[in-house]
Every structure is written in C-alpha cells, then in structure tokens.
Amino acid sequence: MSLEMMEQIIEVVFAILILLGAVIAVISVLGLIRLPDVYLRSHAATKSATLGVLLILLGAFFYTWFVHDFFSIKLLLGILFVFITSPVAGHLNARAAYRSGVALWKGSVRDDFREAIKQERQLEIEEIKNRN
C-alpha cells in the first residue's frame, strides 16, 4: 500500500468521525423537538449534543494534525472547554427551570427535589422565626 493511499484513508476516517458527530447532533436536536417537557429536553440537548460536538472537534483536530500537519492547541482547548461547561450549563438551566416553577411532564413518576425544596423552605422559616 502506497503512502498516498494511506493518507487518503486517514482523511476519510476522520471525515467519517466528523460525519458521525453531525449525525449525533441531529439526533439530539430531534430529541429537543420531540420530547415532552423541559427536563427531558435538556437531557437530550446537553448529553448527546456534547458527544456530537466532541466527536466533531476531535475529528477536526486529528484532521488538521495529520492532513494539514498542524497541531492545533486551540481546538484541544475548545474540546476541553465544551466538555467541562456543557454539563454545568445544562444542570444550571434545569435547576433554574424547576425553581422558577416549570411543571413536570404528566407521565413523570418521581420527584425527589420537591421534598428537598420543602425542607429548605421549612428551615428558612424557622430561621426567620428564631431571628425574631
């Protein structure tokens, strides 16, 4: 097998990695459109969108490394940053949604956070009473 052919195969492999990431991104947006409430939607949006973007950025990183012969620190930093911040942002958004009173889907079977919030409110009320 000649060197040129190897290079072509490597190119196609990383392009397929990028394509796989794009397909996963489309699936996650399908979840964002179809799922019934904000918590399920953010589940679809954060997890699989992160995976899709990770695959795409990794594909782009290796592509620039092997084909353009350039080791891109910026892309690595971008991967790291998205990997750290995307779950945090999703969690913050879901918590804010619950605390601002967005209702759960009718088919939800379990809601542990309501008890926790109730206890927290009780503690706050007692604290205010003690202060007076």
Partner: peptide, 22 residues
C-alpha cells in the same frame, strides 16, 4: 417556558461552534 429557549440557545451555540470547525 423560558428554560426551553435557554436550552435551545445553548444547543444552537454549541452546534454553531462545531459548524465553524468543519
């Protein structure tokens, strides 16, 4: 709800980022 829109904006930002890489 507003949280839906925030999640959608977050997704758009991340998709835009990967689109720029490609």
């Amino acid at each position: 709800s507003i949280a839906d829109r925030i999640a959608a904006l977050d997704t758009i930002g991340i998709l835009l980022l990967s689109m720029i890489a490609v």
